[in-house]
Structures are given as C-alpha cells and as structure tokens.
Amino acid sequence: MFRIMEKRLLAPAVHQLVVEAPLVARSARPGNFVIVRTNETGERIPLTIADYDPEKGSVMLVVQEVGKSTMDIGMMEAGDSFADVAGPLGQATPIKKVGTVVGVAGGIGVAPLLPQIKLHKEIGNHVITIVGARTRDLLILKDETEQASHEVIFATDDGSFGYHGFVTAALEELIKQGRQIDEVTAIGPVRMMQATCNLTRKHNIPTLVSLNAVMVDGTGMCGCCRVTVGGETKFSCVDGPDFDGHKVDFDELASRQAFFRDEENLARELAEQKRGGCRCHEK
C-alpha cells in the first residue's frame, strides 16, 4: 500500500506524486491533508491533498524539498512506497457560493489551493487566481490553475514572467481597479499569508488562510499544532487547517515553526553529507 504510482518534477526540488491510498481518496475533500511517513525511522509530516481520484484510489501530493523528510521524498521513485499515509485529516474548507473569490498562492501553495478553487468554480463562484513565485521556473501547475479559474494572474518577484511583483501587490491592484471581491483564500508562506490579510483587512474582505503549523499526530492528540485565532488556542490539525486570517496570530505561528530549527538543520546537513558522500565515490 501507499505505492507511488507516478512522480514528476514540477520545478527544481518540487515534486508531484500520485500515491495509492484508496481509503483516503474515497473520503477526501478540498482542504484535507494527509500525514505521511517515508520509512520506519521517518518523521510524521503533513502534506495537503492536492487532488484525489476515488476511482483510481489515489491522491496527488506536491512536495517541496525544504529539509530531511521532504528531501527523502524527493529521492523516492515511482514504485516505491511510503511506510504510512493517514488521512484525510483536518476540516474540509468551508466553500460557499459568495460571488467572486480570489485565490492567492505563494510558491507551491498553488497545489493545496487547486482543489479549493476547482470547487469554487464548480458551485458557481467567479474565480480569480493569483499565483506568485520568485522566478519563472518556480511557477508550477500553470495549466491546471488556468483550467480551474476564470482569470489567472501569474506574478514573479523578478518579473521573469507575468506580473512583476508580489502577489499582494497584484491583489491590491485588483482591489484598486474596483473589482468586487467577496472572499480571498490565501495559501503559502506565513509572511505571505500575513501580508495578504493585512491588505484584505483594510478593505474588509473575508479571508481564509491555511495554516502550516508543525504537527506530530495530526489527529488532535498532541497539541503541537496549536495556534492562536481570535485570542483563543486552536489545534490546527482538527480545528483547521483553514482559519479566518484576520484573527490569526501570525507572529506566534512563525515563531513556533522555527522551534526545531537547529535540529532540522542538523538532520538536513547529515542527509546532505550522506548524499554528497555517495557522489564523491562515484567520481
């Protein structure tokens, strides 16, 4: 079980995987995630279900290599299997007919955004998607995004493709043009979601964010994923991961994400050494 059926490189160090997980595929909803473990010594890490196919019994994951566990996933090939895939976890994103919805994605945030905007379009919302990346090569899932939206704005920090600037600047332009926007959904790095919320708060646009707190079990058992929303502590794995962005304490989230930085760096260095070592022998 949990065999990788397909694997494809979307951008440098960004992988798309189709993984066999029939029970998960059957019950998945947009906004859900899975917890995976690559092998017996592996960590439990959360990954959003970017797409699911109950018929094929598979889920699609998009993984960006940022540390040891995601690098391990990067090394896996089609045919390999995960030790564990548990899910679907988290609350499904509340998706209602509201009018015009702007999906804002930073980096690989577009992958978890996809199932949400697909459903928005399906139920009759007008969908505008803004996808940002540092540079052209890092823009992923362009065709899929275009299919799932009515309008798409691609933005790059260096101007190598589409709009030159941050996603928040692109969003601000839309607002300034006087476009009616009924809801914003932002998924991406913490600071990007925070900036988006700062902007939409000024314009009173309800904004949903998907919080990527550090998790262990993903089932409400450990409390590691706690976040402060509207002054209250919530467990993002069971109460979220989507929350009203105007109420989220992003500084706390950013700080908590960094708690294990020393250990993460050590694990990554050891992993790199191991790989590097092997390459040396090849020479």
Binding site: T41, G42, E43, V216, M221, C222, C224, F260, E263
Partner: peptide
Amino acid sequence: NEFLTRVNLMKAYKFPEYDTP
C-alpha cells in the same frame, strides 16, 4: 502527550538516527 509521543512513538531520544526531534 506531545513530549512523550515524540520520545516514545517517534523515538526522538534516538534523534538523528530517527528523524523526529
């Protein structure tokens, strides 16, 4: 729960042999 789960279930006392810190 978090502390003990990291150590017992995820074997964090054997980090970095096990990945969970």
